[in-house]
Every structure is written in C-alpha cells, then in structure tokens.
C-alpha cells in the first residue's frame, strides 16, 4: 500500500513515534555505560549496540519526517519533554549493572514482538526500514539473553542481583505495550497483532519460558498500563535527561553541525 489514507498516516505516526523514542532512549542510556561496563569486551559491545539503537531511531525519525513530522534533529534536540513518548523503563536513570541487563532483556523481548507486529503493516517504506534493523536486533535479543543467562547461573550473589532488578523493573513494563492516541487509530491498519493485549500475551509467553530455564519465579502477568502511559507531562527525570543529552548542542543551538 503505497498511498495510505490520512487516518492510516496519523495511525502510523502514533505507532512509530513511541518506537523511535524507545530506541533512542535505550541508545542514550546504554551509551552512559561507556567505560563503566564490568569488562572491556562488554563495554565495546554495549557502546556498539547503543549506536545501533540510535541508528534505528534515526531511520524511524526519517520515516516520520517523510510522513510530515519535523526532522530527526528536531525530535531529538528541540522537542519539549511532554512530546516524548518512550516507555519510562527505557529512560530510567542508570542504576546497577544487573538492572541494565534486565532492562535490556525485557526491552529486546518486547521489541521483537512489536517489530513482528509492525512488519504486518503493508506500507513498503516501513517494511524496508524494519528489515534493515532485523539483523542487528536479532543479535541484540540473543546477546541480551546471554547476559541474563550469565547472571542467572553465576552463583547466589549474581542471582540475587538479578531477582532484585527484575522486581524493580517489572512494575514499569506495563507502559511498553501502550501506543499513543485512541485505539481506533492503530486499529485502522487492521493488524490484530498491534493490539496491546496481543503484544503483552506474546511477550509474557516468551519471558515465562525463559524464566523457567533460568529458575526465576514468574511474577504473574505484566501489570496493565494507564492510557496515558507514554505521556510524560510531569516526569521528574525527563527534563534532566534531556538537558544532559542536549548539553553540547545547547552550547550553540542555532549552529550548523
């Protein structure tokens, strides 16, 4: 479908902005571990995967630009905090290594489910963009699982950190499954997999299976989100994050870089 309707274009924006913002935030928070990861090899791998995520965000912002949104630069450097639509878990401030491993694992498992739902939208530029990301994302998911495996089987101490991090992040997972805008908007594409409940079920079944392998207690289903889950009208952390992220740019906001 090369000529989506106006409703479908609006819907597409509401589907892609959350994804672009999630990818950007995972890339940004991931890059904060530079020189702080527990070993050199993972430090290199993480800085590289963080760049991948920022690259994916750029691809999506460019796609949005083609649909009439402002440029990628605007989205990243100038957009006010209340116009960002990432899930909170992607932008949580850096805490422990175990928390980062768990956050990445949950995010990658969710992202796989989301990408396979979006791939069913018959809009060729989107299908092409997702295809480009697939190879890198398949690696991200595999590596995220390997890091979980190391913590799960690394002895009582690491297992303890893992359990604690899962408990901390679990409450935030709900937001991932929400889109922005009313249900009718994503439903205009007539792709059942895009329904938040469908994505949640697929995510839960994958994670439940992995938890059984790692001997991790299954904390029942992921909690349900509010419809405003991806709106950050009064987020305490976000303005600080944006200031930090834009610090260099803001030295000379009008300059051409």
């Amino acid at each position: 479908m090369n000529h989506p309707t106006h409703e479908q274009i609006v819907a597409l924006k509401r589907l892609l902005i959350p994804m672009a913002d999630d990818e950007w935030m995972m890339g940004h928070r991931g890059s904060e571990w530079l020189a702080l990861a527990p070993d050199l090899e993972e430090d290199l791998a993480l800085s590289s995967t963080s760049q991948d995520e920022m690259g994916h965000a750029k691809v999506l912002y460019d796609l949005l630009h083609d649909l009439g949104e402002p440029s990628a630069d605007y989205h990243v450097y100038f957009r006010p905090a209340n116009r960002w639509h990432h899930a909170r878990v992607t932008a949580l401030p850096k805490s422990s290594w175990a928390e980062w491993v768990v956050r990445r694992y949950f995010y990658e498992m969710f992202d796989q489910v989301r990408r396979s739902a979006l791939e069913r939208i018959p809009y060729p530029p989107l299908v092409g963009a997702l295809k480009k990301m697939d190879r890198e994302e398949a690696y991200h998911a595999d590596h995220a699982r390997s890091l979980m495996d190391i913590l799960a089987h690394g002895g009582a101490e690491s297992y303890g950190y893992l359990r604690e991090a899962i408990t901390d992040d679990w409450a935030y997972l709900a937001d991932l499954f929400e889109w922005i805008g009313p249900d009718e908007s994503w439903a205009s594409w007539d792709v059942g997999e895009l329904a938040p409940s469908a994505m949640r079920t697929r995510f839960e079944s994958q994670v439940h299976q992995d938890f059984a392998i790692w001997g991790i207690y299954w904390p029942e289903g992921v909690p349900l989100a509010t419809r405003k889950a991806r709106h950050h009208d009064s987020s305490p952390d976000l303005p600080a994050l944006l200031d930090d992220m834009r610090e260099v740019r803001n030295q000379a906001a009008k300059a051409h870089w």
């Binding site: 070993d39 050199l40 090899e41 993972e42 290199l44 791998a45 590289s48 995967t49 690696y139 595999d142 590596h143 390997s146 190391i150």
Partner: peptide
C-alpha cells in the same frame, strides 16, 4: 583476542569488538 565466559559469548563479543 578477547576474554569471554563461553565460546558462544566469545562470538557475540567478537562481533562487536572486531567487526563493527
């Protein structure tokens, strides 16, 4: 060369260390 806890992990890390 690199350090890794398993051969599979060595491949995962080599991918990002040497073949970016």
């Amino acid at each position: 060369s690199l350090r890794a806890p398993s051969a599979k992990m060595a491949l995962e890390l080599a991918r990002e260390a040497f073949f970016r």
